[in-house]
């Protein structure tokens, strides 16, 4: 979820300073503090819960695909189109997935494997979850991965992230049926409106998310431009060559090229 907030660092600096009283009896950081934290974070029950979330999503994916196959022909969506959409979605997500993997690996030392899988990999995203963890850690008078970040503070951060993510899911569970009823009414009353609103929402969301990145630093700006430029090139080339596969791989190429540019700019 996530991405409506400006980003982890901004969120943190804005919220952390006036922290409530320091942790009552947070153990001082000890030499074995880190191993202690990771052994707690990697405990079997936490692993089971994380894998359970994976299982729930796999079940959902299976049910949804079967339902789509059943209805497809009746609304003018052939088997070929359904498979095409599935494949396009799969290919388009390879680039972003690898990027998420890199970020998730970077956070393993902070949260342990199962919490990273469940919170950063699924449900949330790196931005919001790290921000939530940072805020929660701050209320205990510690900093994320720094002084005072022991097993207890990790547990506090973990439960705060999970409650926050839970509220998102709760809002989705409560709001979706309401919105569905409203959408149906709107669709029958004004079909032209329903054709414009999704496009407007999509364009508005991505314009704002992209523009938010620009003022963060020169490298952010260069990265946005590189990413957009490679995409323009790929799309033009795909049109010229009539290459549908290139349209689907374009996002992956753009993400990798843009990260390479960011890497060079960062090193310079």
């Amino acid at each position: 979820m996530a991405s409506l907030n400006p980003g982890p660092s901004e969120g943190l600096s804005a919220v952390l300073p006036p922290g409530p009283p320091p942790a009552p009896s947070a153990a001082p950081p000890t030499a074995d503090g880190a191993t202690d934290l990771l052994s707690v974070a990697n405990s079997p029950v936490i692993w089971l819960c994380a894998l359970g979330v994976f299982a729930a999503i796999f079940v959902q994916t299976f049910v949804y695909m079967r339902a789509a196959r059943t209805v497809g022909p009746e609304v003018g969506m052939s088997r070929t189109d359904l498979t095409g959409a599935f494949r396009a979605g799969a290919v388009a997500s390879i680039g972003p997935s690898l990027a998420v993997v890199l970020v998730a690996v970077a956070l393993l030392a902070l949260f342990g494997t199962p919490a990273v899988l469940a919170r950063i990999g699924l449900i949330g995203s790196a931005g919001t979850e790290v921000a939530s963890a940072g805020i929660a850690t701050g209320t205990a008078g510690a900093t994320l991965g720094g002084t005072g970040y022991d097993a207890s503070v990790f547990a506090l951060a973990f439960i705060a992230m999970s409650l926050s993510g839970g509220m998102w899911m709760l809002a989705t569970l409560l709001l979706t049926p309401v919105l569905e009823r409203g959408g149906k009414k709107l669709a029958s009353a004004n079909p032209a409106l329903m054709a414009i609103l999704p496009c407007g929402a999509l364009l508005g969301a991505f314009s704002m998310l992209t523009v938010t990145e620009i003022p963060k630093s020169g490298i952010h700006l260069v990265t946005v431009i590189a990413s957009a430029g490679v995409m323009v090139g790929c799309l033009l080339l795909a049109r010229a060559l009539d290459a549908r596969w290139l349209k689907e791989w374009a996002l992956g190429f753009s993400v990798i090229a843009a990260l390479a540019v960011a890497y060079l700019a960062h090193a310079a």
């Binding site: 998310l209 992209t210 952010h220 700006l221 990265t223 946005v224 990413s227 996002l251 960011a262």
Partner: peptide, 8 residues
């Protein structure tokens, strides 16, 4: 830089 790399 994951966000700018994807969003552009």
């Amino acid at each position: 830089y994951i966000l700018p790399a994807v969003l552009g």
